[in-house]
Amino acid sequence: MVATSTEFVIERPQGWLGRVLEFARRNPTVVIGTSILALMAAVAVFAPWLATDPLFINPIDRLKPPSKEFWFGTDHLGRDVYARTVFGTRISLTVGLAVATFSTAIGLAIGLVAGYIRIVDAIVMRIMDGLMAIPGILFAIALMALFGSSVQNVIIAITVPEVPRVVRLVRAVVLTIREQPFVEAAVASGTRLPRILVRHILPNIFAPLIVQATYVCASAVIVEALLSFLGAGTPPEVPSWGNMMADGRVYFQIKPWILLFPGICLALMVLTVNVLGDGLRDTLDPRIARRMG
């Protein structure tokens, strides 16, 4: 470390690596969450190199328990559960990230305007109340029935009910920020409305929004699995964790591995995203972190 002349000088970690380590020491949950998520992302990206064809059917090897050849066993069609679990990571992550991205982006845009312009607020918030009244899963099933099942439709079906939640959060933050003297000062210096929204209010929303995005992501992963499990999600030929658990449901008492491994992965992913969200919340809002001790 750095040699200091006075003993009261706080030693600041030097260099890029030093700063990363210092951050990790202060925010272990964020680092752990990010690492596990990064690992899962790597698995999703490199799936073809990590596993064999998840769609390859081999009836001779059906319902085999975990072994050297089939690490997670095989299902009722003789498909490799390990390969399907690895490829399933892709679906869950894609849906989770896509829903989080789209719903925060749309919700942010609507919430910003609604929070600042009174008339827009009155109209938009009633529409949002209406959207929130629709049960998400029923809506998804209806959408699947109308447009057929595809990953794209699953993303849309989950995004729509999430948008109002984001809108509400953004609007609430805007309503408090807009009363701040610095916004008044910006208005008094002749700044135009769009610029006030983007320049002065938007940066103050990022912290709660990022945290909300992680929760949306976790919830989207679960809902996707749930929809697939019900047969209203991703098409049956796509190896998603929900589909696999639905396939394994009937054999659960005698061949539990078909359901168990995707289940564990699902739980792990949701837990990781939630832990990351909590960590981010504490890191981005030092007031909460202090209160928690």
Binding site: Q180, P181, F182, E184, A185, A186, V187, A188, S189, G190, T191, R199, H200, P203, N204
Partner: peptide, 21 residues
């Protein structure tokens, strides 16, 4: 006119500046 020909200084220097800019 605002901020150009007539400008204002407010009471709260602590909150009249945007904390994130």
């Amino acid at each position: 006119v605002r901020g150009n020909e007539i400008s204002m200084i407010f009471q709260e220097p602590m909150t009249s500046l945007n904390p994130v800019l």
